[in-house]
Simulated scan of single mutants.
Amino acid sequence: MTNSTRAGKRERLAHAAVQVLHEQGVEKTTLADIARAADVPVGNVYYYFKTKDQLVGAAIEAHGRHLESVLDGLERLATPQERLKALVHGWMEGRDLAAKYGCPTGTLASELDKRDDGLDRAIAKVMGRLLDWMEGQFATMGHADAKELAVALFASYQGIALLTNTFRDPEMMAAEGRRLERWIDSLT
């Protein structure tokens, strides 16, 4: 088996873990569920990941890589206001998925917070990266309270993701997204 084949299967397993963990949660998900979603024989999973926790860790790393890709795309926009509004717009585009399962990263963070094995800190680092990026955008806009504004924006999203999921109503997220876009415009 070549290194690229191994890396390909490992990546497929990590991406499948992101999806299955989001849909089922950590506790209900088995390695067999993830193997099935990745189209990898369950026996092969152990070649790449010795434990489910290692696979959860790989899913967290995949969340981090996805976030960096999103942020790289947002950085191509001209102004911090455009970047923040595009972030909000991206959240709104995921509203149907949020209505079914909640925020992919937020629900995983909430679930892992109940454990004391380091995975909770790993997902917190991913979420912290987004918070830091938002703070940088508000700071670039000239706001001395950039940290507080970033927390408010992130809290609004996490709260609406929870409500959207609880009530299975994607329109809740769309409405809050529109409000957040107006709020961002009011800060300029």
Results as ranks from 00 to 15, higher is better:
residue 1 M to T: 12
residue 2 T to M: 14
residue 3 N to M: 15
residue 4 S to F: 15
residue 4 S to L: 15
residue 7 A to S: 12
residue 8 G to Q: 15
residue 10 R to I: 02
residue 13 L to V: 02
residue 14 A to R: 08
residue 15 H to M: 11
residue 15 H to F: 05
residue 15 H to C: 06
residue 17 A to R: 04
residue 17 A to V: 00
residue 18 V to P: 01
residue 18 V to L: 05
residue 18 V to R: 10
residue 18 V to T: 14
residue 19 Q to V: 06
residue 19 Q to Y: 02
residue 23 E to T: 09
residue 24 Q to K: 15
residue 25 G to Y: 08
residue 25 G to S: 11
residue 27 E to Y: 07
residue 27 E to F: 02
residue 30 T to G: 11
residue 30 T to P: 13
residue 32 A to Y: 03
residue 33 D to V: 04
residue 34 I to Y: 04
residue 34 I to M: 02
residue 37 A to E: 13
residue 39 D to K: 07
residue 40 V to D: 04
residue 42 V to M: 05
residue 44 N to E: 15
residue 45 V to K: 03
residue 49 F to T: 10
residue 51 T to A: 02
residue 53 D to R: 03
residue 53 D to N: 13
residue 55 L to K: 05
residue 56 V to R: 06
residue 57 G to L: 05
residue 58 A to Y: 00
residue 59 A to S: 02
residue 59 A to Q: 00
residue 60 I to K: 02
residue 65 R to I: 06
residue 66 H to I: 09
residue 67 L to S: 00
residue 67 L to Y: 09
residue 67 L to C: 10
residue 69 S to N: 14
residue 71 L to H: 08
residue 72 D to P: 03
residue 72 D to F: 03
residue 72 D to M: 09
residue 74 L to W: 02
residue 76 R to P: 06
residue 78 A to D: 15
residue 80 P to I: 10
residue 80 P to A: 01
residue 81 Q to C: 03
residue 84 L to Y: 01
residue 85 K to F: 03
residue 87 L to W: 08
residue 90 G to T: 02
residue 90 G to W: 01
residue 91 W to F: 10
residue 93 E to H: 14
residue 94 G to W: 08
residue 95 R to Y: 05
residue 96 D to M: 12
residue 99 A to D: 09
residue 99 A to P: 10
residue 99 A to M: 11
residue 101 Y to C: 08
residue 104 P to N: 06
residue 104 P to Y: 01
residue 105 T to Q: 08
residue 105 T to K: 07
residue 106 G to L: 07
residue 108 L to C: 06
residue 108 L to W: 01
residue 109 A to N: 10
residue 110 S to W: 13
residue 111 E to Q: 15
residue 111 E to A: 12
residue 119 L to V: 07
residue 120 D to S: 14
residue 120 D to I: 05
residue 122 A to R: 14
residue 122 A to H: 02
residue 123 I to K: 08
residue 128 G to E: 03
residue 130 L to I: 10
residue 133 W to P: 10
residue 133 W to M: 10
residue 133 W to H: 11
residue 134 M to P: 06
residue 137 Q to V: 06
residue 138 F to L: 07
residue 139 A to I: 07
residue 139 A to H: 11
residue 141 M to L: 11
residue 143 H to Y: 05
residue 143 H to D: 06
residue 145 D to F: 01
residue 146 A to R: 03
residue 146 A to K: 00
residue 150 A to K: 04
residue 151 V to M: 07
residue 152 A to H: 09
residue 153 L to G: 05
residue 155 A to R: 11
residue 155 A to N: 08
residue 157 Y to T: 13
residue 157 Y to N: 12
residue 158 Q to F: 09
residue 160 I to Y: 12
residue 161 A to C: 09
residue 161 A to V: 05
residue 163 L to E: 11
residue 164 T to F: 04
residue 165 N to D: 11
residue 167 F to T: 15
residue 170 P to M: 12
residue 170 P to I: 07
residue 172 M to K: 15
residue 175 A to P: 00
residue 178 R to I: 04
residue 179 R to F: 07
residue 180 L to A: 05
residue 181 E to R: 12
residue 181 E to L: 03
residue 183 W to C: 06
residue 184 I to A: 02
residue 185 D to Y: 01
residue 185 D to H: 10
residue 186 S to L: 00
residue 187 L to F: 01
residue 188 T to E: 13
residue 188 T to S: 12
